[in-house]
Each structure stands twice: as C-alpha cells, then as structure tokens.
Amino acid sequence: MALRSRPRSTRLLVVTLVSVSLLTITLDYKEGDSGPLAGLGRTALSIVAPLQEGVTRLTRPIGNFFSAVTQLPSLRDQIERLQDENAQLRNQRVLSVSELHQLETLKHLADLKASLDPPSTGALVIGSGVDNSEWTVEINKGSSDGIRENMPVFSGTALMGHISRVATNASMVRLIIDPNSKVPARLDEANTTGLLVGQGEEDLKMLGVPPATKVSVGDTVVTSGYRLEGQPTGIDPPGRVIGTVSHVGGGGSALEKDITVRPAVNFSTLDDVLVVLSTGSG
C-alpha cells in the first residue's frame, strides 16, 4: 500500500514545492525591494550576520597564516606589489594636494562642505556573497549605524564597492568588480570621464572614453562623483582612487577607447573597510 502511494505523494510534494518557488519568484519580481519578501531577506541577513562574524573572527587568523605560507615562494611578487603600492601612494599624495586646492575652490564657490566632506563609519568584513555569480561581501554595520543603500565603501583610500542591501546590523557591499556594478569615473591625467563596469575576476572595463583621448598604462583612475541615472543617493566623493589603467586598446576607427582598469583594492584580502555616509544631497 505504502509502496503504491509513495510515488504519487512524492510527485504531489514536488509539484507543490515547485509551485511555491515559482510563486516566490513572481512575487519577488513584482515587489522589488519594498515588499514583505525583501523584508524577510533582511531578517535572514541579520540572523546569519552574527554567526558569520563569529566564524570569521575565529578563522581569519588561520586563513591569514596559510595564505602567508603559500605566498612565501612568491616573495618577489610581494615586493613588486609593495613597490607598486608605494608608487601609487606617492602618486596619491601628489593627487591629494591638487585635490585639496580644488576642494578649497569648490567650497568657496558653492557651499558644498557637507557633501564633500561626509562622515564615515568603519566596518569589518564578515563574509562574502553566497553564490559564485555575484561579487559581494558582507559587513557588520547596518541601518542602525546610518548605512543606506548605494553608499560608497572604501578599503584604505581606494573605492571598493557600494552598499547593495541593508539589514539593521549588517549590510551587503557590491564590489566594483561585480558585473552589475557601474561607477562613474575619471581618468586623472587626461581629465576625461567614463563609466567603470565590473567584469568579475578580470580587470574593470572603462566605457565611454573618446578614441582621441591620450591614455597610457599606469594612469590613475579616480571617482568622478557624478550621479548615475536612477540612483537617488550615494554619490561617490570625487577624486578618490579606484585603480590604474592596465591596458589600452582600440584603434582610430573605434568609437571609444578600449580601456581596462586594475582596481587598487586587493579583493582577496578585505578586512577593515570604511563606509562613507554620503546622503548624495549635492
């Protein structure tokens, strides 16, 4: 008896579960970020976040030890990287001096002080996204610390991503290498703006740069502070480092220059980050 009823009840079960899944997909699609399902998602995030924080605090020192061991044979690489970083920092200092002048002028020109020098809060990276197709990390600060969606997040002084989802005690950061990430940027030397789009593990792609622009490998790319269409909040503070040009292509016949940009942030070793609490009022 049980043997005969088993396949049918199993099939019924599977059909029910599949229907519920489809219903969830439809509901979520219609609701967007405001409905009760999104609320449930935020609740799930705030439940898992403390666990992740615990595990991360426990395992990160171990992980750091092992990655240090595996890096031993490539000490030369490390030195090279440090030299690169050194050069970049020097570059940055020159940049920040000129930026300071610019800032002063701007401050005088318009009363923009608040939006140019926004408050920020430090946070700890406690986990990464669940799935392989998105490049996100989770941090241990949320809406109770004043964090809202689209706020820019920095690692050191370089831009690493934007807040994509907020719970009370944790939030998700979409890294700039995520294919869904779009950052308005400026080539510092050429003073030309464009749009940086993530390409996952590969370097960022810079779109919208005219072919006549003079760009060379090693040029610094900074935030332009422009607002993206359909993004009410979260303007990046202008002039912050994103990365350096790693490849320039595209002949004279191309409509735009083919530029890739290597991020200044090392995304495999994210630890302490800084969220700029910019309200984007400017």
Binding site: I25, L45, D131, E134, R174
Partner: peptide, 11 residues
C-alpha cells in the same frame, strides 16, 4: 533570502 537576486530561483 541571503542573495540579492529574485528569490525562488535557487529553491
């Protein structure tokens, strides 16, 4: 529910 994509696909 921990992902930022439409819920239900993985389910």
């Amino acid at each position: 529910f921990l992902l930022n994509q439409p819920k239900g696909i993985t389910a």
